[in-house]
Structures are given as C-alpha cells and as structure tokens.
C-alpha cells in the first residue's frame, strides 16, 4: 500500500521507517479491537459457564416439581417460583402485547408524524426509566395501604414490557408494503379492517417475535417485583394473583443474599433455569426477527 503525499520527501514510499511505524500502529489497533471483541464474548461465556457449572449439580427433576424445602433442610425445588413467574409474566404479556401493538398501529397507521414522533419519544424514555422506579411507582399506587400482590407485580412488569413490544411492533408494521394497504383501500375496505385483515396478519411473525423479546426481558426482571411481589406468606404453589406470588428472580435474589452455601447452590440452579430460558428466547426471537425483516423488505 503506497503512502503517497502523506510521506515527507526523502523517505521511501514503502518499507521506510515511517511507513513501518504506521503499519505497526495499525496492527496494534487491529489487534486491540479483535481482543476487545474476544473479551466481550469471553465475559458472556464466563458468566454462562459459571452458571452451568454451579447450577447443574443441584438441578434434577425434583427441582422443577417440588416446593422449597423448609428452612435449613436440603433438597426441595422451585416449583412455586416457576408457577408464580409464569403467571406474572403471562399477565404482564397479556396486558402489554395488545396495548403495545395498538400503540404501534396508532403511530404507524393513524397518527400524524408529529404525534407519532412524540409517542416514539415517550416510549424510548419509558424504556429508560429505571425498573426499580417503576417498581416503587406501582408500590405507591397499588401496594401502599393494601398489600403486595401478583396483580401489582404484573402491572409493573407490563410497564417494563410495553416499550419493548411497542417499539418492535412499530418497526415491523412500518415495513408492511403500502401497496397491500392500497389494494385494501381500492376494494373499499375501511382503515380498521385493513389493519386487522391485512397489516397485522402480514406482520404477525414480527409481532410475535417482539412479544417473545418482551417476555425474555421481563422474565428476568427483579427490580419491579421487589416492592410488589417479594414477601410471600407461604411457600406453597400460589395461583391467585391477589396475593404476593413467589417468582424466580426474587427467589434468586434472596437466596444470593443468604450466607448459607446450600442457598447459593439453589440460587445457581434457579439461575441456570432462568438464564437458559431467557437466552434461548432471545436467540430464537432475534433469528425470527431477522427473517421477518428480510421477508418484508425483500432484502
């Protein structure tokens, strides 16, 4: 590679000391950048491998099906937390997905550009609200003067999930070809029918992956639950959201704060269940997301 006019007169174009220095600096930077990428992937591997190594020994079928052992005794499982988490995340998703998709429908189909921009801004800012603040917001709204409940926790999680679902729905709805919608208009369909019969079905795959990403994000959220569903009256399986529900993130949190090694072993096993669930969902959703985007944009 020649260095041309950048070179002071008198030195050789290639292979001179200055050129060698420039090439060396370049090599150094390239090596540093590669190293940084390796480092980031290594950290991910380190965390996942730690969870695997420390979580696997305590993991067996009973861990999924049994209720927690009484304090200080070995064995037991997290069946109650699994059920609780499933219900909380299910409720949160049942709230945030319809609302999120409707928000996206509004901004992409009905709202003017300024209103749509304002809502987009609000969603991004909402996404940046610390989840612990969302937790204390719901605590003040639904728990103070009342008691912790699955409902409160589900609403808090829904607020966290809403911007994720809405943003990804906006992205896919905006990709639905205009020609399809115009075909609907030409047939005399009303806007809402076009949305329900053409736009949403065309984007269905993308909408589902957005919901899955939302579930993946919210399944691991602890902060919104600390103030809303963390103090359980009994350790059995609870299916009623009108009381605090045991759940996996808070269980890991309180076990991790315990000084007992046996509790740490349980925390790791629960962490393994959670991390596998979350990472699997994230990877699958991402793959699908990419496919939907390619299909809709034709790229």
């Amino acid at each position: 590679m020649g260095a041309g006019s950048l070179q002071p007169s008198g030195s050789r174009l290639v292979g001179g000391p200055r050129h060698r220095r420039r090439v060396a600096v370049n090599r150094l930077v390239e090596a540093g950048c590669t190293l940084a990428a390796i480092l980031a992937v290594a950290v991910l591997a380190l965390v996942v491998i730690s969870v695997l190594i420390k979580g696997l020994p305590a993991l067996n079928l009973g861990f999924f099906t049994q209720e927690p052992a009484p304090f200080g005794q070995p064995g037991g499982g997290i069946a109650n937390s699994i059920v609780g988490s499933a219900i909380l995340v299910g409720l949160a998703t049942a709230i945030s997905v319809p609302v999120g998709i409707m928000v996206a429908v509004y901004t992409t189909q009905f709202a003017g550009p300024r209103v749509a921009g304002a809502i987009r801004f609000a969603l991004d800012i909402l996404n940046g609200v610390p989840t612990i603040v969302t937790g204390v917001f719901i605590f003040g709204l639904m728990v103070v003067g009342n008691q912790q409940s699955g409902w409160a926790a589900a609403v808090a999680l829904a607020i966290v999930e809403l911007p994720i679902v809405a943003r990804s729905a906006q992205e896919v709805l905006a990709l639905v070809p205009r020609s399809l919608q115009e075909a609907g208009l030409a047939l005399g369909l009303r806007r809402w029918r076009i949305v329900v019969r053409i736009v949403v079905p065309t984007a269905a795959g993308g909408l589902i992956t957005g919901a899955v990403l939302g579930v993946a994000r919210v399944a691991g959220e602890t902060a919104p639950l600390l103030f809303t569903s963390s103090i359980f009256s009994d350790l059995g399986i609870t299916t009623s959201p009108s009381q605090a529900m045991p759940n996996i993130p808070v269980t890991i949190f309180s076990l991790s704060e315990s000084p007992a090694p046996a509790d740490h072993a349980r925390a790791w096993a629960a962490a393994l269940v959670l991390i596998l669930f979350v990472l699997l969902l994230s990877v699958v959703a991402r793959a699908f997301h990419e496919r939907t985007r390619r299909r809709l944009t034709g790229r």
Partner: peptide, 12 residues
C-alpha cells in the same frame, strides 16, 4: 453474542 450480554438477567 455481544448483545446477549444485555439479555443476562441482572440478578444473575
């Protein structure tokens, strides 16, 4: 993979 780092639940 780098983005998956963000998917690790904070409690873990």
């Amino acid at each position: 993979l780098v983005e998956l780092l963000a998917a690790i639940p904070s409690v873990i």
